[in-house]
Simulated assay, not measured.
Amino acid sequence: MKGIVEERAVELGEYIIRNRATVRSTAKKFGVSKSTVHKDVAQRLKTIDPQLYKKVKIILEFNKSQRHIRGGIATRLKYKKSI
């Protein structure tokens, strides 16, 4: 029988795949911390559902490669609003 943690890990992984979501947006959606999301999808999911883990890993690696671009855009918009 699956525990609540395992169910949450699968649910988070499916959400990330379905929405190509970031760890931060997933955490906000589910009301948990970024650390919890990351631990669930990067560690627990690996043993629970290896195929789902591989799909999630691809999306997380893409998001990681794009984070410097997203950060620059967010900063530009922040200062554009304050002017």
Results as ranks from 00 to 15, higher is better:
A9G: 08
V56H: 00
N19E: 15
A74K: 03
E7I: 15
Y15D: 07
R44N: 12
I17A: 04
G72I: 04
D40S: 05
E61W: 05
S35C: 09
T36V: 13
K55S: 07
K57R: 04
A74W: 00
K81P: 03
I17F: 07
E11N: 14
K54R: 11
R8P: 02
Y79L: 14
A9F: 06
I4K: 13
K80R: 15
S35T: 10
T26F: 03
K55Y: 04
E61D: 10
L52C: 07
V41W: 00
S25G: 09
V5N: 15
T36H: 05
N19S: 10
I59Y: 02
R76M: 08
T22P: 02
Q43P: 03
R20V: 14
E61Q: 05
D49K: 08
A74F: 01
K28Y: 10
R20P: 04
L77W: 05
L60G: 00
I83R: 14
F62P: 00
Y53Q: 02
T22E: 04
D40R: 01
N19V: 11
H68T: 07
E61N: 10
V41Y: 00
N19P: 03
L52A: 03
M1Y: 09
G3R: 11
D49T: 11
A21C: 09
V37E: 01
R24Y: 07
G72S: 05
F30N: 02
L77E: 06
E14P: 01
T26C: 10
K80P: 02
I4Q: 12
I73N: 01
I83H: 12
M1A: 15
I73Q: 02
H68A: 08
I16G: 00
V37H: 01
V41R: 00
H38C: 09
S25M: 11
I48Q: 09
V32R: 01
K46T: 05
K34P: 02
A21G: 10
R70G: 04
S25K: 07
K78S: 11
L60E: 01
S82V: 13
I4F: 08
N63G: 04
Q66Y: 08
K64V: 11
S35H: 08
R18G: 06
T47L: 13
R20H: 14
G13I: 04
